[in-house]
């Protein structure tokens, strides 16, 4: 029987059942660590592009195009997630 899921801010997710996925090689872990350490106060924000919805239009946003302005970049778990 399918189990009912409670609605909460942590978005319900699933995943493969059975044997666990192979662990990443140490080499890959090092790369992730390197990427994570890019974020530091007083250091440059990593540049990126991302598609966006803005006032009725679909646009492409590039962070570096906002140089000269103050930017607040907010991440959140997902649309319709209550908080």
């Amino acid at each position: 029987m399918a189990e009912e899921i409670n609605a909460g801010c942590a978005r319900p997710t699933g995943g493969p059942v059975g044997e666990p996925a192979p662990k990443p090689t140490p080499e890959k872990e090092n790369i992730i660590k390197e990427v994570m350490s890019m974020i530091k106060v007083g250091k440059k924000a990593p540049d990126f592009t991302a598609p966006a919805y803005h006032k009725g239009k679909f646009i492409n946003v590039k962070l570096s195009e906002y140089l000269g302005k103050w930017v607040v970049l907010c991440f959140y778990p997902g649309d319709f997630t209550f908080v």
């Binding site: 530091k40 007083g42 924000a45 962070l63 000269g68 103050w70 930017v71 991440f75």
Partner: peptide, 16 residues
């Protein structure tokens, strides 16, 4: 598989 509530203040030089 989702992003947490991260908020970054970036100045006009692109510095966090």
């Amino acid at each position: 598989g989702v992003e947490t509530r991260g908020r970054f203040i970036i100045d006009p030089d692109g510095v966090i």
